[in-house]
Every structure is written in C-alpha cells, then in structure tokens.
C-alpha cells in the first residue's frame, strides 16, 4: 500500500525537482537556443529567445564540412561496437552457460584491463600507430575503440546471458528440438534484448570517447569529438556556430541515451547495481 501523499507535498516536490532539473539541463538548453541566434545576438547578453536563424547550421557545413566528422563518428562508433559484439558474444555465452572454476577470475581480469589509464600506454600506442601507418585512419581508431570497450561489452552480455534460465534449454531438448532449432527459436529471442542494450550503451560510449579519438586523428578520420575540440581556439565571432556544431554533435546520442537509462546503470556498474 502506498503512503498517502498530500497534494501540497506533491506540488512542492514537483516545483523543487523541476527547478533542479532545469538548472542541470540549462547549459544544453542554452546551447540549443544559441545555435538559432545570429553571432551578434549570441554575445549581446542573456536572452532565451533567438531570432530563429538556421544560418549557423548552414555555415558549419559549408565552412567546416560538418558531414565528414559526423560520418566518421557514425562509422567508428557503430563499427567498433559491431566488432566488439562479434568478438564478445561467443565468449560471454561460454562463460554464462558453461562456467568453470576460473570463469570468475577471467571476468575480473578482463575488468581490470579497463582500469589501465589510457595515458600510460599513449606513447607505445602512438609509436605503433605511426609505424604501421594507422594514425588518422578509421581502421586504427576502430581497433582502439573496440579494445577499450571490449571488457564492458563482455561484462554486460555476461550479466544478461546469465539471466537466461538453463532449464529452458533442457526443456526444449526434451521436446525434441535440434541444436539449430534451439538456437533459432529458443536462445536468440531471449538473447536479443541483452545484445541490443549492450550495443546501444557501447555506441554511446564510443561516440563520446575523447582521448584516443582526439590524439590518434587529425583530419581524415577525425570524429566529432576531435572536430569540436578544434573549436577551442576561436577566431572571430563563433559562439552561435559553436552552438550549432555542438547541438548536432550531441543530439543523436542524447536521444539514444534517453532510451537507455536502465541499461546505462547496469552497464557502467558492471552489473553491480540493477
């Protein structure tokens, strides 16, 4: 039975929560608003009402070729995620369904690789990339992103797969299902939601990764993180254009993120909080 709540309490909580929410969201909101202002408007002092120009979006594309880093971000984040899934699904599957005494140790060890600070291996990775001609290449950065997110992908898949009851396999076998039928009709439908959630979270993480993507690229393979970082030395009026570029860079992932709240908690705590 729920506790009785007076309307007054509810109204107070509503006002307080909306105030906090809007303050936290404000920098994002203000960026979106500013992207529809003209440059003189953008520096003319605080205002929440833009003149509604789309000029900045057009300028960012014509002057800075926005589509290129955007496509790089899409290719890199989706590519590295699919690659990581191809490698991780069989491994996580094996650990979830045929665990041995060492499974737990292997999982913990995999997690520990995620804790190696990126800067510690910056020098060797940079030199290796230089020697193999992988600097500023999509292939190089895809490999990098796959490797750094692989432990999280394995862990997430493992926690999802572990929830699939093993008895259901036995039941389907008793009913005379062959291995192929077992995979297609029993396992796949149960595994797909977990794989989809893992994919979603990993695309978000790869899209926002800002160490390797900035350091290992210059122009050709530069994703949005590197593209936006290049705005850090301003030339002339650029507030509104920066806002337009930023809005476009975060919008797709913001919307994906809203749909993945639950998976986020689970994925980033390695299943420790659900």
């Amino acid at each position: 039975m729920a506790r009785s709540v007076t309307t007054r309490q509810k109204v107070i909580a509503t006002i307080a929560a909306w105030t906090v929410g809007l303050i936290i969201f404000f920098p994002i909101l203000y960026t979106i608003i500013t992207s529809f202002k003209t440059e003189p408007e953008a520096i003319a002092g605080f205002s929440l009402i833009p003149s509604g120009t789309f000029e900045n979006y057009i300028t960012v594309q014509t002057q800075r070729d926005y589509i290129k880093p955007f496509m790089n971000s899409v290719v890199l984040s989706v590519g590295s995620t699919i690659l990581a899934l191809i490698i991780a699904v069989p491994g996580a599957w094996a650990m979830a369904f045929s665990p041995t005494k060492r499974t737990k140790d292997i999982l913990m060890w995999m997690l520990s690789t995620k804790m190696m600070p990126a800067v510690a291996v910056l020098v060797p990775i940079y030199l290796m990339f230089r020697d193999f001609g992988l600097l500023d290449s999509r292939i190089g950065l895809t490999i990098m992103l796959t490797l750094i997110n692989l432990p999280i992908v394995i862990w997430m898949l493992y926690t999802y797969f572990r929830e699939i009851p093993g008895e259901i396999l036995e039941a389907s076998r008793m009913d005379g299902a062959g291995l192929w039928q077992e995979i297609v009709y029993v396992l796949t439908p149960m595994a797909v939601p977990g794989i989809a959630s893992t994919m979603l979270l990993n695309i978000i993480l790869a899209w926002n990764e800002s160490f390797w993507s900035i350091r290992l690229t210059t122009v050709e393979a530069a994703p949005l993180t590197a593209f936006i970082a290049s705005f850090s030395s301003p030339q002339g009026l650029f507030w509104a254009k920066l806002s337009a570029a930023s809005t476009m860079a975060i919008a797709p992932i913001l919307i994906l993120g809203w749909f993945s709240q639950k998976q986020l908690v689970r994925g980033l705590t390695f299943g420790a909080v659900k």
């Binding site: 920098p27 850090s232 806002s243 860079a249 975060i250 809203w258």
Partner: peptide, 15 residues
C-alpha cells in the same frame, strides 16, 4: 537530470 552524461567532453567543456 541525466542528459549531461551523454554530452561528449569537448562539447561540455567548450559550452
């Protein structure tokens, strides 16, 4: 409240 988490670090810092 959760939105800032999805903002890539360079955008957050520059904004």
């Amino acid at each position: 409240v959760i939105s800032p988490f999805f903002v890539m670090p360079p955008v957050a810092a520059l904004v």
